[in-house]
Amino acid sequence: MGMTVVLEVQNLSVAYAMPGGALQAVRDVSLSVARGEVLGIMGESGCGKSTLAAAMINLLPPAARVGQGAVRLNGTDMLRLAPAAQRALRGRSVAMVFQDPMTAFNPVLTIGQQVADFVGAHDASLARPDRLAAMLDRVGIPDAARCLGRYPHELSGGMRQRVAIAAALLMQPDVLIADEPTTALDVTMEAQIIHLLRDLRTTFDGAIVIVTHHLGVIAELCDRVAVMYAGEVVEEGPVDAIFHDPQHPYTRALLACDPAVVDPASGRLPTIAGRLPDLTAPPPGCAFEPRCGMALAVCSQPVPRRVPAAGRSVLCHRGAE
């Protein structure tokens, strides 16, 4: 696998204007994803993962303000482009798949019309019915030609998600971002979408970014994982290292309380006491310190980013134990 970086987020900070002050949703995040790689962004609600995903495709809501940093796609900072140039990139070079694909479709147009509209806006030759059908077929939609004539409500959630993925892939984007792509689906559909996305890695030449709170999805699908807490990436590394040798206390705590890993006979599940800090006034030191079982006096000081091994980084005062 070549290590050509496609998308690079550099020291990005994003804040939302709120009545009580600016809510700092993403704080000094640096990440990169290479061609052919699947990056997972994992964290609980309020950790800033969806804001980060929106920034990656330059689709931040109007209330969001980029404080500093850059989002470079093949070296070009998307945040500094003129609006027209941004629109051209969106969909063409970066595509996004949402949690509930129903909301992404117009209920009164057929699947074929919408997908053709979407890709035709960028490249009319792609909107030919045979090419659309071929792509639907590739994402595992049975009877793809007939599916083009159906309306969104006639498809199940899993099928709509497949169509959304197909539409995103038709443009052959450099980066595909999927925000909670399986959260609205049943287990069996979830397994099929995971399977499909994993399958695509071999044929799709771009990078995939999966944003989710579901640890199982990350473990099944990703090569590399970034764990977010309170707007920061607290730990990053290869998926195996994150799941089998977590270094940050938050990553450890999060993995520990998943009922899927806990022995059912043990009865009680571990929990993480306390709650997220107020992000309108984030602490100068470690954001996890008040909830951390291993906190030291130094933890209220600004945290250095350690690199315990190649390809890994941890935002924690404590050394490897």
């Binding site: 287990v187 069996t188 199982g216 473990a219 799941f243 890993v261």
Partner: peptide, 10 residues
């Protein structure tokens, strides 16, 4: 079908 939170058990 349930995704297992262990990359070694894919």
């Amino acid at each position: 079908a349930e995704p297992k939170p262990d990359p070694r058990k894919r």
